[in-house]
Amino acid sequence: MNHEQISNNQREWWVQRWLELLDSYRFKKRLERGRNYAREGNVLSIDFEGAQVLAKVQGSEPDPYQVSLSIAPFTDEDWNYVIDTLSEKAIFSAQLLAGQMPETIEQVFISNGLNLFPFTLSDVHSRCSCPDKANPCKHIAAVYYQLGDRFSEDPFVMFQLRGRSKENILDALRQRRKKDPLNQPTQPVEKEETTSKTTTNKTKKKSSKEAEKTAINLDEFWKYEEPLDSSLTVIVPPKDQKTLLDVLGRIPLAYAEAEAVEQYLEQVYQVASQQAMITALGRDE
């Protein structure tokens, strides 16, 4: 395995997906020329105009060529469904806010009938002002590879190509979280004074009863005193065989350290799961 392959294998998974898309293109030589252009710094600039990428690539002529790229953006309705689904799990919001692309985020789009990444390069619409009639020309190909570096720096670039900027997505997620009553702190409600003492007393009694219902005793929170019907209790492992480590994604440490920590935690989870099963079934070790 050469240095470049090792470097590619260490890239973030969403960058790998983009590079795999490029590798699937059958005219390898054309893309290879574009890769060399990108390495040599011929891509002078990459900017976004809405969901469209506008780039300047220096070619053989004095003036740089104008390149544009775009992928079919999702509709407002599509994005509303996606944001609703993302907001249902706090881990998605936390990882996106930390600049990480959750490993299971593609399932969010798939569950809403969408695909975040294009299937083939033919799904990427591109144009270049150079005289080369073939598409992609080496200038377009150079922008493809340069975008891979942009994805590494900011995973929201792929969302931008689909029609939503980083600010749009994070603001929408914050709004959804604010609307969720489970995420709202309890605020004291000031009651207007009334002239009727009877009404005031009834209100106080009602508020007191509601407070008793909603009060949480942390010491008793996880206890359940009622007997369980054993015929209704079924204990099975998760169907997808995923642990909490799989759900949370890669640990933000150096590769070797992350691997060691993950291996240790896997053993801990296995032992904890076995002990939980033994306890649940009422058996001794």
Rank of each mutant, 00 (worst) to 15 (best):
L31R: 03
Q58A: 09
V247E: 05
N36C: 06
I251T: 04
A142Q: 06
I6A: 05
A94L: 13
D171Y: 15
S7I: 08
L97V: 14
K138T: 00
R150F: 14
S126H: 14
W18H: 04
I140P: 03
D47T: 11
L182Y: 11
D63H: 13
L265F: 05
G282R: 01
E49M: 13
D149L: 15
L265I: 12
K89N: 08
N115I: 09
Q107V: 06
D284S: 15
L121H: 02
E193W: 14
T195P: 05
R174Y: 11
E193N: 14
R30M: 06
D78N: 15
K206V: 01
D23E: 09
F27S: 05
E257G: 07
S207N: 12
P227Y: 01
D63C: 13
E262C: 11
T104E: 09
L248P: 01
E226M: 07
P62W: 10
S24Y: 00
S122D: 11
D78C: 15
K204T: 06
K242F: 02
F151V: 12
Y144D: 03
L244K: 02
G148K: 10
E77M: 14
V82G: 04
G249S: 03
S45C: 09
A172I: 05
D229L: 00
D246S: 04
Q275N: 15
T186H: 09
T233F: 06
I71S: 05
A38E: 05
V53L: 04
H139M: 08
R283C: 08
F156Q: 03
L54H: 11
T198P: 12
D76F: 10
A38L: 07
V82H: 01
D149Q: 15
E61Y: 08
L69W: 05
L22N: 02
T104P: 07
N183W: 06
I140Q: 14
R150Q: 15
H139V: 02
A258M: 02
L245S: 09
P102R: 09
Q95C: 12
Y269I: 14
C137K: 08
T200F: 12
E4N: 08
T243E: 00
F27R: 11
V234I: 11
G282A: 07
E61N: 15
T214I: 10
L116M: 09
E106W: 06
R174K: 14
S60T: 12
R162V: 07
L232E: 00
R35A: 04
W79Q: 08
M277G: 08
S273C: 10
T233P: 00
R17G: 03
P118N: 12
